[in-house]
Simulated assay, not measured.
Amino acid sequence: MKPADVLSPDPAGGTESGGSWVAGLVPNPIALRCLSVELRAPREIVAGEPAKFVLRIRNRAPIPLAVRLPTSRLWGWDVDGVPDADERRFEPPETPRQVAFPRRGIRQFEGTWDGQIRRSGIDGDEWRPQPGTHTLTGYLATSKNTSNLQDSVQITVLTR
């Protein structure tokens, strides 16, 4: 399943885009400190069966915010430090991106992981099951992944 960007309604009545002129007045380092990240995922999954996880990024500030990101990527995830559970590495275009958060608004992203890691093999790419306990981390794709902009959960991958 392809990740989805879902913007939760702003209970304070702000605009969906959060594009208020006020958003541009807050310096990027301060705006980033106003965000919090929460990852929700199952504690156990079966290798080969896709399991959904959700990353929620919340603007805790009472005003809309706009944050600048160094690439076109807005968010990401990794398993034990392997981005997108794919050892082949993906580098997003280095086109900076700005994203708006309505006051007290939430952006929610959905992804899936099936307990496998993609590796380059002799006959092409291979997906290999990874039984055991792993750390799934979701984050806002800033140039520095600070602790308030990422969250992790432990997931146990079972085989059948």
Score class of each variant (00 low, 15 high):
A4V: 08
L7D: 02
P9Q: 01
P9W: 04
P9L: 07
D10K: 02
D10G: 07
G13A: 12
G13H: 08
G14S: 12
T15G: 13
T15Q: 11
E16G: 05
S17E: 10
S17P: 01
G19H: 04
V22S: 01
L25D: 11
L25F: 09
P29C: 06
I30W: 10
L32Q: 07
R33E: 14
C34V: 03
C34K: 10
L35D: 09
L35A: 05
R40V: 12
P42A: 07
R43F: 08
E44D: 12
A47P: 09
A47Q: 06
A47V: 14
A47K: 07
G48K: 12
G48L: 10
P50Y: 10
P50F: 07
P50C: 13
I57V: 15
R58F: 07
A61Y: 13
A61M: 04
P62Y: 12
A66R: 03
A66G: 06
A66H: 01
L69T: 01
R73Y: 08
R73W: 06
R73T: 06
R73A: 15
L74A: 14
W75G: 02
W77A: 04
W77D: 05
V79R: 00
V79M: 03
D80N: 11
G81Q: 09
V82Q: 07
D86I: 09
E87M: 06
E87V: 06
R89N: 09
P92Q: 06
P93V: 02
P93G: 06
T95Q: 11
T95M: 12
Q98L: 13
V99H: 10
V99Q: 04
A100L: 09
R103H: 09
I106P: 01
F109R: 02
W113P: 00
G115M: 11
I117G: 04
R119H: 14
D123I: 15
D125I: 13
E126Y: 08
Q130S: 11
P131C: 11
P131V: 01
T133S: 15
T133A: 14
H134S: 03
H134W: 11
L136V: 04
G138F: 03
G138S: 06
K144D: 13
K144M: 07
N145L: 15
T146N: 14
N148C: 06
N148H: 15
L149E: 02
Q150D: 02
S152C: 02
Q154F: 04
I155V: 15
I155L: 09
T156H: 09
L158D: 09
T159P: 05
